[in-house]
């Protein structure tokens, strides 16, 4: 099946990327960590939003909570413990907010997801201020190569998760929910349970990614850890690449990471303009993204 071929392709490419720290400079290893981070985030986002059609504008909340957990427990827990814990905490938070939040659809869900992420950001800022921190530094973080392999594992995990969800009943049910929730429910899809499960699964990897990036940055600052741009960027990547395709988020992440690397230093404003134009263009004219099948299927003679 083509789904399996895509999974082998993506996981194979990630496997080949494992050579980067051995052959590349620290610059390239750092660049690869950034690329892998976005692959993991965009792939995770598409597990929930790409399949269910519930567009989350607040996935950064899972990333930020993961970062916060790892940093806040830095002196007490080893990363071997705190990073998996960050994934669990993000999934648990998704379960807790999911039940009420997933009752609303469409633009209301978009706004609500964004609002929750902002709310949590300000709660963390307030909590940090009350504890006497504006930001936190962490010392003795793992070296660059270790962080690279951790991020590689997270990108692979997100891809494997996306593949697993897509090839089981959960994936079929989520697609049915995306297309028509009433019809899905009427053929027997347990819609509330499936949406909640997908949100929790989709939150776990971003939690671990946030924790890993906190170690890379060696500091934690809530405005950055909960920056809405993180949510927007993963959406842009998934949309440009194709959010209902295993390769899509990977391709979208690579395109935008490369673009940002080209433009960030010289013309950061131009990067934002191009990003906005790309998202608009794809959403309007290529809704299936670069890997989209919608266009291809329609073009195929009946």
């Amino acid at each position: 099946m083509s789904e399996r071929r895509d999974a082998v392709l993506v996981l194979g490419a990630l496997g080949a990327g494992a050579a980067v720290p051995a052959i590349g400079s620290d610059y390239w290893t750092g660049f690869a960590i950034t690329a892998l981070m976005w692959i993991a985030l965009a792939q995770s986002w598409s597990v929930f939003s790409g399949l269910s059609g519930y567009v989350s504008f607040g996935h950064v909340v899972f990333y930020g909570l993961g970062a916060y957990l790892v940093v806040a427990t830095w002196d007490r827990l080893s990363p071997a413990l705190s990073v998996p814990l960050a994934a669990l905490a993000a999934a648990a938070f998704a379960l807790a907010i999911g039940a009420p939040v997933l009752r609303v659809r469409g633009p209301y869900f978009v706004i609500l997801s964004f609002g929750i992420a902002e709310l949590v950001k300000f709660v963390v800022i307030a909590a940090e201020a009350a504890a006497g921190h504006a930001s936190r530094l962490i010392l003795r973080t793992p070296d660059l190569a270790a962080l690279f392999y951790l991020m590689l594992a997270l990108a692979a995990a997100a891809t494997a998760l996306a593949w697993a969800v897509r090839s089981t009943r959960l994936g079929h049910g989520l697609r049915a929910i995306r297309e028509d929730e009433v019809a899905a429910e009427t053929i027997g899809v347990p819609v509330a349970r499936y949406k909640l499960a997908a949100l929790a699964l989709s939150a776990a990897v971003p939690g671990a990614v946030g924790g890993t990036m906190a170690m890379r940055a060696t500091y934690f600052e809530p405005l950055q850890a909960f920056d809405p741009m993180v949510s927007f960027t993963m959406i842009a990547m998934a949309v440009i690449g194709g959010s209902d395709d295993l390769r899509g988020p990977v391709l979208g992440a690579l395109v935008l990471v490369y673009l940002s690397e080209l433009l960030w230093a010289g013309a950061p404003q131009l990067y934002m303009v191009i990003l906005g134009a790309l998202v608009l263009g794809f959403a309007l004219f290529v809704p299936g993204g670069l890997c989209g099948r919608a266009g291809a299927r329609r073009a195929r003679p009946a």
């Binding site: 079929h172 697609r175 049915a176 995306r178 297309e179 028509d180 019809a183 899905a184 053929i187 899809v189």
Partner: peptide, 17 residues
Amino acid sequence: PFAGLSVRENVLAGALF
């Protein structure tokens, strides 16, 4: 219909659930 899915996938969804 599940408009964005193929005819085959629409019916498969019925069978899977």
